[in-house]
């Protein structure tokens, strides 16, 4: 049995793999990052992990199963779909139990040590945008979940494989070079999971000074449009991306507004990734 304790954003859970094949999924998602420890620590006051998600496989039909206790959550015939579902389930549970700060549904990348967060809910193009910026030299932090601890100046990013749709993979030459089967990519029905090692990311959780908030919106055939947001507008947008409001005093409203006061924010409408990195670089204070 292989297991890993995942800790992030004041929340934690245990992942266990009952078989070697199931263990390969855990290995891909959480254990093969350079220097990745068996236990990943973020907030020291994290409660003891209570939830255990178990993956098992059956040699008879090569299927995989995911369990929460005795409840079967998912079945798949291949590792890729199981990895995708497990990755999403882990983030959902960490976010739901997160405390001690603000947890956002957000991508994040770094440029010359400055972190830029891209909050936004699903279907806003965050993963494609993330891949595009990696191709243009930015450092990958996360495509899904960030945490802003109370009284912090550093953003924490939950590093995980980037989930990229098949339809856009051809746009990214560097990522397309690695064809499955490879330990650094796992295909599923609608896309592929790209290991952080392919994206230049070396940590299991990343922390960086937050320099900028960008709220992205992909709009086909639209010209590039970057609009500065007032602090109030940024606060409103942040509230919409907050995923642990119910765990926070006054749903995190004051902390949100404080964050909005201190970090510059922009709305980004785009349809083409070309040159986007350079356009965003110019917004980062001091660069």
């Amino acid at each position: 049995m292989k297991s890993v304790i995942i800790e992030f954003a004041g929340s934690s859970l245990i992942l266990a793999a009952e078989t070697q094949r199931a263990g390969e999924i855990l290995e891909f998602l959480y254990l093969t990052l350079p220097g990745a420890p068996a236990r990943r620590c973020s907030v020291p006051e994290s409660p003891e992990p209570g939830v255990t998600l178990l993956i098992t496989s059956h040699p008879a039909d090569n299927s995989f199963e995911l369990y929460d206790g005795s409840t079967r959550l998912f079945v798949s015939q291949a590792p890729g779909p199981m990895a995708e579902v497990l990755q999403g389930e882990v983030c959902r549970r960490l976010a739901a139990d997160s405390q001690g700060g603000l947890a956002f549904h957000s991508a994040a990348l770094a440029h010359h040590g400055a972190a830029v967060a891209f909050p936004g809910m699903m279907q806003q193009g965050k993963s494609t945008l993330t891949a595009g910026l990696v191709e243009q030299g930015w450092t990958y932090l996360t495509d899904e979940l960030i945490f802003w601890p109370n009284s912090a100046t550093c953003l924490q990013a939950f590093v995980r494989p980037l989930n990229l749709r098949h339809a856009v993979l051809h746009l990214f030459a560097k990522l397309s070079q690695q064809q499955p089967p490879t330990p650094l990519r796992m295909d599923h029905a609608t896309g592929t999971l790209v290991h952080p090692a392919l994206l230049g990311c070396g940590g299991s959780t990343s922390a960086a000074d937050l320099a900028l908030l960008i709220f992205p919106h992909y709009q086909p055939a639209s010209p590039l449009c970057i609009t500065p947001l007032t602090p109030a507008q940024a606060g409103l947008a942040l509230m919409e991306s907050l995923v642990n409001a119910r765990n926070l005093p006054e749903h995190g409203f004051r902390e949100i507004t404080q964050l909005a006061r201190t970090v510059p924010a922009y709305h980004l409408m785009y349809s083409d990734l070309q040159g986007l990195g350079r356009a965003l670089e110019g917004l980062i204070p001091g660069q």
């Binding site: 007032t230 602090p231 109030a232 507008q233 606060g235 409103l236 749903h251 004051r254 507004t257």
Partner: peptide
């Protein structure tokens, strides 16, 4: 409502 003034604008939040 909880009220926060940010520059000349306001955000209101109802728990």
């Amino acid at each position: 409502y909880r009220l926060e003034q940010l520059d000349d604008e306001l955000l209101l939040y109802h728990l």
